[in-house]
Amino acid sequence: MLITRVKKKDAILSLCKGKTLLIACFGCKEVHFEEKEYQALKEDLKTSNLNISGEIQLDYLCNDDYTNKRFELHKKEIDEAETIIIFSCGVGVQTFAGLIPGKTVLSGCDTYVLPGFSGFTPSSHDCEQCGECMLGFTVGICPVTACSKGLLNGQCGGAKKGKCEVSKNKDCGWERIYNRMTVLKKDDLTLKKMIRVRNYNK
């Protein structure tokens, strides 16, 4: 799923020209739009002499039907502005920019990805949609996502005290697989026998 974080002032200000309209998307309420940071940035932009001509708060900017309709609703404000800053994920920015190709549209946010799919509370489990699911062999723990390196053939040797070399907050995925394996499928040799090479062209 996607989440956004508001950009720093310096990343935006130099690109703005003339009357600037802010459009913030408050959709995806299962995660949290950085509202406080957004308000702070807005104040900061104002004190930096940016000519903010207006502000519109919407949700689900990614839905092109809705965005289209709202575009008509706010046509005047949009037409009058020279620059439009969109505070949403990349999907929202692209949807909007696609509707007004002649106008400078800036993105006010950076988008990050979290485990799980949009619409749900972020999951502790992730699925990279690799198209060759091996969960059936790995006792339901995904090596593609639970291992920092996405290794398919066993652990790399970088784990210490069960934790990944990348972070002490992350359990080694392959150790988890192994531990569960010993409980559930001790005698199963399938995983040991297979050598897997990922197909990135699925």
């Binding site: 390196k149 398919l152 053939n153 066993g154 790399c156 050598i195 897997r196 990922r198």
Partner: peptide, 9 residues
């Protein structure tokens, strides 16, 4: 990080 392959593959 690439990790297209791993030590086994």
């Amino acid at each position: 990080p690439v990790f297209d392959l791993d030590s086994v593959s």
